[in-house]
Design a binder for these strands. Structure first.
Lengths: 230, 230
DNA sequence: CGATTATCTATTGTAGACAATAGTTCATAG
DNA sequence: CTATGAACTATTGTCTACAATAGATAATCG
């Protein structure tokens, strides 16, 4: 039954371009605020402008680029306010996921979270921060997927992606991920244990302290709305 | 300072097409599941296909249409599961808005909510259900705007829009809006009073019972994932 | 007479070219 | 020497045309 969902999609040039440009942005190959000249991208990707422009529209909706009429597109520039928005939204979405999904139904998705956590522990042992971040995102995504809520999953993925953009810009990475790696993983382990126990409130409480640290100093800087780097 | 935000934008054909098609869908001129033939739409709107296709990509991201590769776009078909997702997501976003915005800062936005509520009362007196729904949406949007959270506002608008699609299909309208109109408005009045009082928790509590009625029977039908109309 | 396959048509995917505009540079006047 | 204006260039916005594919129809074979 789950094999039915495997449908070999012909990758349209639009989807291809979306993936490629997204990767470029998140990998930092395209700098923050950098203009995305259509001609240059078409040449680079080997496609023509119509599919590229459709791809840009999608990325715009995803929040990775900003398009101003007659002035083209630029890679999104994130202010402190933006980071605040991303983090708060992420937490709200995770909360909903826990509330809906925590007396866990789909054992398969739970497996995903477990595997991601194992991967996190491996990364922490190896002190591989980059992979740890990725595994952490997989873990959280798996947690969110527990609810079986398509829109929630998509919204979360979009926010997660913007968070990756933050980290690519090193706005957020330092203060959040330069803590003790094993404590970091331990908190996630506890989270998963509570999820398995099936008590949503306990998970939510843990999630609250989980996120508190990263928010507290952010909250204070909110309101400035100033660009966070020059 | 707020006058600075007034920038007369030339409406690109893409934006024009997005608005036009969105209106057609929400007005029910395009039936649920109906195919959107590009040639027909270009002729109807008097534009060519590239801007139309960009518009379709945007609408796809917004969740109003579904596009399958090589098979074109269709107006989104909403299942019970979809309605459930929309409602739960909406509540989660409103909760976040209240948490962040309720010791209300921006008095201007608060005015918006007050005006919308006044409008609601007028509609309830006139028994104008259609306008009441619209005013209600303006009210909720104003409430969400209190937080001054751009991403939250956009996400909420998208969800709200899909909710309108539900109502256009009469999936949700009957059981939710065929209650007593004045009680409906009274609940919103209470909500706004609590917001003005500045106690987020009280607002959240009220919001919970506010939404509980509409969710309870939904929750039970979840899992069927069957199409909700034929 | 029913099922299967080949052709055909309607529709989407993509490309290249033209038109319009915003930013830039240079020249000129104060 | 600075500021203003005009021409220019780079880039976006849009259109028409071509290629490729999926669904439909009809014809043929069992």
């Amino acid at each position: 039954m789950s094999a039915m969902t495997e449908q070999l999609r012909s990758p349209s040039l639009v989807q291809l371009a979306v993936d490629a440009i997204r990767r470029m942005i998140l990998a930092g190959e395209l700098a923050e605020g950098e203009r995305l000249i259509e001609d240059r991208l078409t040449e680079q990707l080997g496609i023509s402008r119509p599919p590229l422009r459709e791809a840009l529209r999608i990325l715009e909706q995803e929040g990775l680029i900003v398009t101003r009429p007659r002035r083209g597109s630029t890679v999104a520039t994130l202010t402190d306010q933006d980071v605040f928005e991303i983090l708060t939204l992420r937490t709200a979405l995770e909360r909903l996921a826990i509330e809906l999904g925590v007396p866990v139904q789909d054992q398969g998705r739970f497996k995903d979270a477990q595997e991601a956590l194992t991967e996190m522990e491996r990364c922490a042992d190896a002190e591989d921060r980059g992979s740890l971040v990725q595994a952490g995102h997989r873990f959280h995504s798996a947690l969110v997927a527990l609810a079986g809520h398509r829109r929630l999953i998509e919204a979360y993925a979009s926010v997660q992606q913007q968070l990756l953009l933050c980290m690519a810009r090193n706005l957020y990475a330092r203060e959040h991920y330069y803590e003790d790696l094993h404590e970091h993983v331990a908190r996630h382990r506890k989270l998963l244990d509570l999820v398995e126990a099936g008590d949503p409130d306990a998970v939510l409480a843990e999630l609250a302290v989980h996120g508190e640290r990263s928010f507290s100093e952010r909250q204070s800087t909110v309101g400035s709305r100033s660009a966070s780097n020059s």
